[in-house]
């Protein structure tokens, strides 16, 4: 028996919005520790890694490890039927071929349930080694989304250069070029407004705008985003989901021919 209850359906809606650009379907691996998902996009250039800890749920029970393959568009349809502040309970029997989502309104006057067929997905998992990154940048998630959106108008790729002084986002295309520099904040009123850089070595890497834009669909989940970079390894873009877990995206850098 698997049962996970979350007080506000909106959190799950935001997670779905953050991954359905990149993934059509995905396997949710459920264990006593929580729910995990690791999946690459169709082109195998980026990877989504989601972890929701069991202690972040209002109620969580997982008697046996279970992998639920789900179509994310179907799941989105179901979650669109819930109000943001509905409590959601996800339930499945052991070895079941369906999963049930139950939504309860705050005053309990409306209870709805939706049963969805599970899929058998043959998903490849990648072993991702722990890396000491040369640069770790923390910045407001909204600012990162804004910069990626702005620069995407001018080119297909964004060059991210990080030094101790700050981080620079650059692009160029048919109409010209664009640069956005962010300095590390020396003082800030609110922690979520800070730009903080931890640098061992300066790094410059180039990434496709298309994927960076998809990652920023996670912006509503967190105030801050963390970018981790080292030469010749994939970028990690991480959003912490408050009190519940994290959503990480990996993106292979572009390489000079």
């Amino acid at each position: 028996m698997f049962e996970a209850r979350l007080i506000n359906s909106v959190t799950f809606k935001k997670v779905l919005d953050a991954i359905k650009d990149l993934l059509n379907e995905a396997s949710f691996d459920c264990s006593e520790a929580g729910i995990q998902l690791q999946a690459m996009d169709n082109s195998h250039v980026s990877l989504v890694s989601l972890a929701l800890r069991s202690d972040g749920f209002d109620k969580y029970r997982c008697d046996r490890n279970l992998t639920m393959g789900m179509n994310l568009a179907s799941m989105s349809k179901i979650f669109r039927c819930s109000s943001n502040d509905d409590t959601v309970t996800i339930k499945a029997q052991d070895d079941a071929d369906t999963v049930t989502f139950m939504f309860e309104s705050k005053k309990q006057e409306k209870i709805s349930d939706y049963e969805m067929k599970l899929m058998n997905l043959d998903q490849e998992h990648l072993g991702i080694p722990d890396t000491d990154f040369s640069c770790v940048i923390r910045m407001p998630a909204g600012e990162f989304a804004r910069i990626v959106r702005d620069l995407s108008q001018f080119g297909e790729s964004i060059v991210i250069s990080c030094t101790k002084e700050g981080v620079k986002f650059s692009t160029s295309g048919d109409i010209g070029s664009a640069n956005v520099k962010l300095a590390q904040t020396s003082s800030f009123e609110k922690e979520e407004e800070a730009v903080i850089i931890e640098m061992q070595e300066p790094v410059t890497l180039t990434f496709a705008c298309q994927y960076l834009n998809s990652f920023t669909k996670a912006t509503p989940l967190a105030n801050q985003v963390q970018l981790s970079m080292s030469d010749n390894v994939p970028l990690v873009v991480e959003y912490q989901i408050p009190d519940l877990g994290h959503l990480r995206y990996y993106l292979a850098p572009k390489i000079e021919e």
């Binding site: 250039v45 490849e124 390489i255």
Partner: peptide, 14 residues
Amino acid sequence: VQNQPTLMNFFKKK
């Protein structure tokens, strides 16, 4: 010219 490698150029399949 820049080339877009896949993640398998960096990570091994489990």
